[in-house]
Amino acid sequence: MDIRVLKPADIPHVQSTNITNLPENYFMKYYLYHALSWPQLSYVAVDVSRPKKTPYDPPKIVGYVLAKMEEEPVNGIQHGHITSLSVMRTHRRLGLAEKLMRQSQRAMVEMFGAQYVSLHVRMSNIAALRLYRDTLGFEVEKVESKYYADGEDAYSMKMNLNPLREQLEADEDYADEGEEVGDVGKKEKKKEDGEQGKTKRKVKLGRGLGVGELVERNESSKA
């Protein structure tokens, strides 16, 4: 089982995996929106040993994490969000979900200077809760009542990514890449001030771009 970054060509199978495993489903465009906005954040687990049935068989996806950055972070604090995570039942307990999550989290920090990552999970989902809380170190932030379409409550969970950042910085010093990494976290403020005399677009990107409307509608219908 390979763990690697999600590519556009993986999306049909990721979509299949999602609708096989979870009740919260999205159409293709929503996956594209993730893959083309934050291509570094979403990962897939691939069964590389599967024999091909046709010369065109795409890689067989057996798990994925679909992740994003918050579009309009409150106070400009960058943070990531897990939109969806699942692993085929035939491939569970191999450690895939954990590995997918860890790759995504590191990319959030490195690429976007994320301070924390958040997610929602059904209160009854024991497997996922153990993974998030015990294995990865998420904490329950609050309960969101009737978050899901069927009326179930959700835990809103958060994981502080600063320890991960510190660890990455330490590793990087070790690797002697000789670069400054300390300013990653300050990124957003700078952006808003506008750099180099160019006014940077605001991070308000989901909206008004054709994809945006759809995205929001979708998120509300999913939630």
């Binding site: 465009k29 594209l32 083309l36 906005s37 677009r201 990107l205 771009l209 054709g210 994809v211």
Partner: peptide, 10 residues
């Protein structure tokens, strides 16, 4: 279609 413009902005 929408990504031809969206991706440029993003």
């Amino acid at each position: 279609f929408d990504f031809h413009s969206f991706s440029l902005r993003k």
